[in-house]
Simulated scan of single mutants.
Amino acid sequence: MSHPENCIFCKIAAGSIPSRKVYEDEHIFAFHDINPWAPVHFLLIPKAHIASLAQVGPEHEAMLGRMLTLAPRLALEQGCNPYPEGGFRIVSNTGVEGGQEVQHLHLHVMGGARPWLRG
């Protein structure tokens, strides 16, 4: 797996920068956002360095499917209320115009009681 030496998310996934871990397996790492926008707010990242959603290809389908399959389970475990009254939101900022701040593919999973709307 590629891990650019200056990528903060690669360092978090490798354990060289501490985080509040939510989940880890061979290919995926999830951790709490340090500046949460919601009562539940964590990030799902691939351990392999992929700069953004714009760089994924057919070879990443299983990994992305795994991330999206994990999101509902982890959201419930972290305190989101069940569907349909409860729920969560998944956001993937892509590129400068999309609001991406860290150039490593990541999914924000946000939920919990409102009012947490910020955009």
Rank of each mutant, 00 (worst) to 15 (best):
N93V: 08
V22W: 06
E77S: 12
M67F: 10
N35H: 12
P72R: 14
Y83R: 09
A14M: 05
G119F: 14
G99Y: 07
V109F: 05
E24N: 05
G79F: 02
G112T: 11
A38W: 03
A51E: 13
E101T: 15
N93F: 07
G86V: 08
A13M: 02
S19Y: 02
N35T: 09
P36G: 13
A54W: 03
P84M: 00
S16M: 02
M63D: 12
L44Q: 09
E77I: 01
L105M: 03
F88C: 01
N93S: 13
S19G: 08
R89V: 02
G86M: 05
A14V: 06
N81C: 00
E26L: 00
M1F: 01
Q103F: 10
P72G: 15
G15F: 02
E24R: 04
H32W: 08
H27L: 04
L76E: 13
L53P: 04
S52M: 04
H41L: 09
E59P: 07
D25N: 15
E59Y: 03
I28A: 05
E77F: 01
A14E: 14
M110T: 14
G98Q: 14
A13I: 02
H49Y: 08
G99A: 14
R89D: 05
R118I: 03
A75I: 07
H106D: 09
A51I: 04
V22H: 09
I90Y: 06
I50R: 05
H3A: 12
G98Y: 12
S92L: 04
Q103K: 07
G65R: 07
H41Y: 11
S16N: 08
G95M: 08
Q55A: 09
R114G: 10
M110K: 06
P18T: 06
G57D: 14
K21R: 15
G87C: 01
I45Q: 02
I12A: 05
E77G: 05
C80V: 06
P84L: 00
F9E: 03
I8G: 01
H104W: 02
R66A: 14
R73M: 05
G111N: 13
A62V: 15
P72D: 13
V22F: 07
I50V: 15
A30N: 06
S2H: 07
I50F: 05
I90R: 11
P46R: 07
Y23T: 12
S2D: 08
H32I: 08
I50M: 07
G65P: 12
G99D: 13
I28R: 08
I34H: 06
H32N: 11
L107V: 06
N81Q: 12
E85A: 12
R66Y: 00
G119K: 14
H108F: 11
L53V: 15
F42Y: 13
Q100C: 03
R118W: 03
I34E: 06
E59N: 12
N81R: 12
